[in-house]
Design a protein around this nucleic acid. Sequence first.
DNA 1: ACAATAGTGTCTCTGAGACAATATTGT
DNA 2: ACAATATTGTCTCAGAGACACTATTGT
Lengths: 313, 313
Amino acid sequence: MTSDLRHEEEGAGPRQGSGDERAFLASYDPRAYDPVAVTVDVVALTIRDGVLHVLLVRRGLPPYEGMWALPGGFVRIADEEELAHAAARELAEETGLLTKEDSLVSGAVGRVMDVADPVAGPVADPQEILGRVHLEQLGTYGSPGRDPRMRVISVAYLAFGPELPDPEAGSDAADAEWVPVEALGLADAARAGQRPGTTRKLAFDHARILADGLDRARSKLEYTPLATAFCAPEFTMPELRAVYEAVWGEELHAGNFHRKVLSVPGFVESTGATTDRGGRRGGPRPRLYHAGDARLLHPALLRPGREEEETSP
Amino acid sequence: MTSDLRHEEEGAGPRQGSGDERAFLASYDPRAYDPVAVTVDVVALTIRDGVLHVLLVRRGLPPYEGMWALPGGFVRIADEEELAHAAARELAEETGLLTKEDSLVSGAVGRVMDVADPVAGPVADPQEILGRVHLEQLGTYGSPGRDPRMRVISVAYLAFGPELPDPEAGSDAADAEWVPVEALGLADAARAGQRPGTTRKLAFDHARILADGLDRARSKLEYTPLATAFCAPEFTMPELRAVYEAVWGEELHAGNFHRKVLSVPGFVESTGATTDRGGRRGGPRPRLYHAGDARLLHPALLRPGREEEETSP
DNA sequence: ACAATAGTGTCTCTGAGACAATATTGT
DNA sequence: ACAATATTGTCTCAGAGACACTATTGT
């Protein structure tokens, strides 16, 4: 590699540009044409019946045929699709929120909004269909051996949503399912040892991706108002507490939690109203809140039970 | 897209393609894919003379010819190169730590160690050459318009090191330079508004990547012992404090900082010795410490001056 | 001698958590 | 009536930050 080329780090290849440029670049860096696929994988989390669930699909083709995997798919390079758009699209397809596939496949996708800064997008935009689902990039996994067929660079996304619909209802996402995270027998990387190591069923390196996603989710609950993304637009304090308990996997003190949440400015705001009925086992009617405008929690809601640890094995 | 194909998210044919078999076979035909390049970009940070610096290179070719850019380059797909390996290699080349390019270009790269869990690697491994440079993935940037020539998916890495050598010294990385972060006139995303928006010189979306990297670095100093990666193997408390002050861009109270660091278990350990001389302007000889074995700081060293904020504009 | 700095001590205030008390609801 | 639950109150302790003090060094 020449010095000129080393500094020429940002791509070089076909399409666009004059034929001169193409020939020039191609002759100097054939590596740009090595076969590589770019995909997205989505760690979609929701809470059903107070239990944290992740969306998985059953693979219908080899490799890993019959095993569970994270939903995902190719980034539509030819359609100039944004990475986040691809993630939202895959999630929308898999959850059955999108029945008309053509509305997404069509070339009309064009410009795509920034997920972090929503603006009105085209009709086909999956983010619009997904509604208030939080979506953020998790990390990129591109080890050579992760797919036995070819080199695949997969950008993983993390999605949180309130009570997302069951994929089996009426759509053609027949093999998708919400699975309780506990049922996967992950070697809870958050509390116990380091790496998930051997996990049961997941295909590819999806166990690792899922573990990373869970770590991220648990961590983000501490210092961001992310938990409200798991709730309906209006929620009660016990509901919000249930989110924390489900994601962290431990019970929290109701009284202290209540006071702590209210003490963080901008986290939640009271609507003044209460629910119609009390809890199913009795009790007064809890008040209703909606998410505030804070993007960071000060002070943070730190996870309990993290005192002395790290006595290297 | 058939149901089977949608679930076949990991490498199978180029978009449309109703024929199952054709799609399957296409997964083994590289030319059937839309052209896309995978690169790495590195936000390399170090501290020189108490000031935070980032490694930049001057572009010698269009587009953005003559502008500053982050060091980076293609992932060597044909060599089965790990993403982190590519980042380490680019950094090693750019800092001049690697003079013999052939040792990296050779096909002997083969298996590459996990950066997060170092093991003995092959001779050509750049991580080995880079020594104790911390390297972690920052995020992936793949918007269609970010490179005018073609679709480029760039995986950004964040690197921290103690007093990395000057790239201009004796190597062929002639156009690389350590630049004070302040000199770039970034709209300090950490303190002021939201997005960096318009930044002066950087090519592509590298201003955004750099801003994200700085945010990450500032944040990680709070709850990880990352600051020790900026120091020599043995360091003094004032030196460690200087790291925090350089990255956070604000002065810290020496006395409180000292007591706070020592109160965090596993952060630093005393060697019992002191430096030979006191400070250049007088004072007693500070004690020497080395990094402890903690990977997370409990309690964290929270950044000061982050009280009331977020009054939406 | 003087200025600068490393390290320690002390005080105050905030916040987290344990625990208790009260009010309100479903069964 | 009884059990369950929401919400508020009280107490204690750990930790952050402001400030002061002492000891040690370079000039």
